[in-house]
């Protein structure tokens, strides 16, 4: 990806400050430190070498030890006063402090003592360096779903690289048992999902942690599996039945939290969403959930199925009352 000028500027300023603190750093180490390629580090060093104060005579310029550099070691000999690390901008501080706080809050139960101590010390140092006020603008709460014993088993399996035995209930309310190799825990503001390789179907699956009924650590190590880029996120698929819902405005959240193909705002304030539905149980749940705001359903068989389920439930309420 093309390096944007502001990002490159910050990296070069950061390199001078870092090199001032470390006497002679191999190019490869500098590359790891700043998360770029060795070739990029060399381009940065060569650009730094020709910058400096107006006049740009040899003693005006940022300088490195040329013989070290020939051997692949970057040694700063003249910094032109640029050795102090640059402070964080207001939004930069907010973005990191808010993220750390959210992690501390959400991952707390999933982390062992050592790791949560690191998280807290990073947060304390950062807050001390940027000021507490900076952090007040943004407040993030991540989902903390799932039974505590499940959360902690999942976290331990990920940390130790062990296989898990899950008892899981899917969206259609069907419970099953399976062995999985955990890959990662994906947490957002709504749910927590375990991305894992399911050995029963020999493929990657997302398990909602709050639907994991029980998780047991097995003695076997988890095997490594290649997962597709973007696994662990939901995106509207191209397969599955196309279903269109026209909804009253107050059901706007449907467009916001479900992976919809398309949203169309209509003049009367209502809107239509197109969904690609792979799992009919999930769709029926959604229709019942927003029943109060459903204005139209296409195809009509979806409406008929939901209505039948609703009538059965209403009859059950009546039977219970009598």
């Amino acid at each position: 990806m093309a390096d944007r000028a502001p990002d490159r500027l910050l990296r070069m300023l950061g390199m001078i400050a870092y090199l001032d603190r470390h006497e002679g750093v191999p190019v490869g180490e500098l590359a790891d430190q700043f998360g770029v390629s060795a070739a990029q580090v060399m381009q940065d060093v060569e650009l730094l070498w020709v910058t400096g104060t107006p006049g740009y005579l040899p003693y005006d310029l940022i300088d490195f030890d040329a013989s070290s550099y020939e051997q692949g070691v970057v040694r700063l000999t003249e910094s032109r006063g640029m050795t102090r690390p640059l402070r964080l901008g207001a939004r930069e501080a907010v973005s990191l402090v808010a993220a750390l706080r959210a992690l501390d809050d959400a991952l707390g139960p999933a982390l062992d003592e050592e790791r949560s101590a690191v998280l807290r010390s990073a947060l304390a140092k950062l807050t001390a360096a940027t000021g507490d006020a900076a952090a007040g603008a943004v407040d993030v709460v991540l989902a903390r779903t799932g039974a505590p014993h499940v959360q902690s088993a999942v976290a331990r399996a990920l940390r130790l690289g062990r296989r898990l035995h899950l008892r899981y209930v899917d969206a259609a309310d069907v419970a099953s048992e399976r062995d999985v190799d955990p890959i990662r825990l994906v947490t957002d503001d709504e749910h927590s999902y375990l991305l894992a390789w399911c050995r029963a179907v020999d493929g990657e699956r997302l398990f909602r942690v709050d639907r994991v009924l029980d998780a047991t650590l097995l003695d076997e190590s988890a095997e490594e599996h290649d997962v597709a880029e973007g696994a662990g996120t939901f995106a509207p698929g191209t397969d599955g039945e196309l279903v269109t819902l026209r909804l009253a405005s107050r059901a706007r959240w449907v467009a916001e939290v479900t992976p919809v193909d398309e949203v169309r705002n209509l003049d009367d304030g209502s809107f239509e969403v197109d969904l690609r539905v792979v799992n009919p149980a999930w769709l029926q749940h959604l229709v019942l959930q927003v029943a109060g705001a459903v204005l139209e359903v296409r195809p009509s068989s979806v409406a008929r199925d939901a209505a039948q389920a609703a009538r059965a439930a209403l009859r059950a309420y009546e039977e219970l009352a009598s």
Binding site: P6, D7, L10, R11, L13, G14, M15, A17, Y18, R21, Q33, F34, G35, P85, L86, R87, L88, G89, R91, E92, A93, V94, S95, L96, A99, L126
Partner: peptide, 12 residues
């Protein structure tokens, strides 16, 4: 924003 913050912190 957070990537830039990180670049700055990598210096220290």
């Amino acid at each position: 924003d957070s990537t830039r913050a990180l670049t700055k912190l990598r210096a220290v």
